[in-house]
Design a binder for these strands. Sequence first.
DNA 1: GCGCAAATGATACC
DNA 2: ACCGGTATCATTTGCGC
Length: 831
Amino acid sequence: MQLNFIPIDFDYVDVNDKSVIRIFGRTADGKRCCVIDNCEPYFWLLPKAGVDLQEYAKKVSKVELEHAGRHAIVTRVEIKDKKFLGKDVKALQVFVQNPKDIIVIKDAVKRMRETEAKKEIDINFVTRYIIEKNVRPLMLHAVQGKELSKDEVKKKGWDLNVDIIVEASSIKFLRDESFEPKILAFDIEASEFEVGKGQILMISLADKNIQKVITWKHFSNAPNNIEFVHDEVALIKRFKEIVKEYKPDCLVGYFSDGFDLPYLKVRADKHKIKLNLGLDGSSITFLRGIIPSSKITGLVNIDLYKFISNIISPILQSETLSLGDVARELIGEQKVEIDLSKITRQLQKGDNKINWKRYCLYNLQDAVLTAKLFAQLWPNIAEMAKIVNEPTYNVSRASYSQLVEHYLIHNLKQFNEICANRPTREKILERRARGKYVGAFVFQPKPALYERIAVFDFRSLYPSIIISFNISPASLQSTAKNAYTTPQVEFGKKKKIFYFNKTRSFIPILLKKLIDTRKEVKKSLKRKRTPILEARDYGLKTLSNATYGYYAFFGARYYSIECAASITAFGRYFLRKVIDEINKAGFGVIYADTDGIAFTLGKKTEKQALNFLAKLNRNLPEDMELELENFYTRGIFVTKRTGEIGAKKKYALLVKDGSMKIRGFETVRRDWCNISRKVQDKILGMILKEGSADSSLDYVKGVISDIRNMKIPVEDLIIRTQLKKGVEEYVAIGPHVAIAKKMLQLGMPVGAGSLIEYVVAQGKQKGKKAKAKERIREKARLPDEVKQNEYDSDYYIEHQIIPAVEHIFAIFGIPKEQLLESKKQRKLHEF
DNA sequence: GCGCAAATGATACC
DNA sequence: ACCGGTATCATTTGCGC
């Protein structure tokens, strides 16, 4: 029979000592299917120089071992001409019966005197299969094979909850066809925040066609979508039942790897309920790493929080990655918050006045928002999976470095390349201990208010450098012959020069392919904007930008600090070159950082600037391009807090439409309180629009007087700082750490990653001197502990308002003292 | 106990 | 451990006196 289907999830299991691949997917007519296929596991051996390959192969082919109850044998060995890091090598392809045997056999063959190195022992078997059989996750395939009856499948010891099972004889990629998975979003609420404590109170489920809360907390006047069960046992069982009946392709949660699923597992274990949600009846498994994750066979379990924090967060404005913040930004829905810690406290005290209906609806809201967020982000997950050719499950949890690596691994075949090994633990330690190399150049601005500004920037600077100068570990060579020569590459004080062969190597070629594909996507986007094309564009862009960082990442297979440092060296060279040329052309460079340059037009026109831009581009390498970022009416650059020199990475520009581009200022920093951010934003706007500081001075004085008169709502005085590690790990106990400790004592859920909120209140010390000496952490309070007349107005004026505005006024010659004078006094002075 | 520089820590830029 | 270096700034820590 032939079946057209879309692969969604992959796994492999042993059948009679052999590993078989199972692909779970959807058929063209929407049925859930499982395709069973084979793949021969293998790895590579590189021989030492002068080794008799035939003899060596013979010797390797005889390897046979007993290990962990398995009889591991080499099934056959082939001698192949391959490439490793671009160089020709002879290699033995060593086939085994079961991927598990690789780990056993590689140790035996590694010890042979003929063996120089072993390769590709750490390639995941699913990845191996996808490469060998040219399968493309989430795209349409035709499978030829035999349909298996339920009975035949049972003989393999499986009970598969799918509609069709096919044993493949061949599998063929057909085309990229857009696919929307059937999903079930879920969210649990529990009586405690810590996994292992308390019990599950309710579980919500949501998709387009379902919105449901299951709870064992009974109450009257419940809406239809609330289903009551007897107890927690019935709750978990009902959850399982719904998941099994609904048959989603993806089970979606928000922070579900970190909370919902581990919690569910602990409670299920406690009640001796099997959490066998897998399509083969298997239980959910947890991978314990630094970042725990969970896997359900056949059912792609997606933790949207992970995907967002890994892949989407760089473009988010949200100050936290909480479901509420992210949903507001991405889908424009405001989450209705309730006080969860209050409910927890009430439950602990046995207080019965909990509004269960409201709590249930809150719970449902989370599941619904998760479902909506998924709908929004699915194109991003799917397009990324298609670009790198890895299964959805892996992609949804991968960091950019992993994605870059997946992309490379899946494309080595066309270069006949053997994959580099993953670094050993020792290697990682060594790499992490290495000194830093010099990165980008940042131009020191002169503090002032500027008019008529243009900003040019390099389009994808680092990727274009990698491509232009063929920067890769495979092209690095020791002589200048037929090579690109780097500018001075700096490692601290040491300076070096590197040479990269001019024959294009696989990483720059693959990177160029990403960029060329993106150009095509951009063209299509011009014709018609679709979420899929936008997601593809985003994926291609971010992946190509991540390649430079990948070279410098200690966990990378293709780690090369020489490459990373060469890239930044070229970057500095071209940025400086363009700065010089802009100045020479009669413009005035104000500022530059990494790949962008801001300069004043002076007496020149915008058109002249654009003509000059075209001229600059004619002198750049083909794959490099300088673009106009924008023209600005005005811009302000300030001094550093200490000294008179201009602060880098801190400026505000006024766009012609009246909007502002603000970088680095307190306004854009989440660890400053709202009032200081608001005041700074306001005066930056006033100054940039008016070209003077006249009206903003009065405005600031007004705010200072309001603070002094205790008129500012405590809410605007909250300082938010993230806890980057566990409370006990801190050497310096800052205000947020002190507050976190207090919160822990109160039984509130606090740990690494929590955003700690506090307000600085009046201290206990009396007398001006003693007051000033009291540590800020001693005066820090939880926001709801501080009444309107209790905040420390001096602190907010001196530490939050003045620092945020002082250096802006300094541009106009207005000293700090003048800000502190009252409005009236100033008027008297004027008379 | 005081005043200071160094250390620690968070966040942003690109 | 889950992309890099560059940069600013607040607050605490700890040293010398």
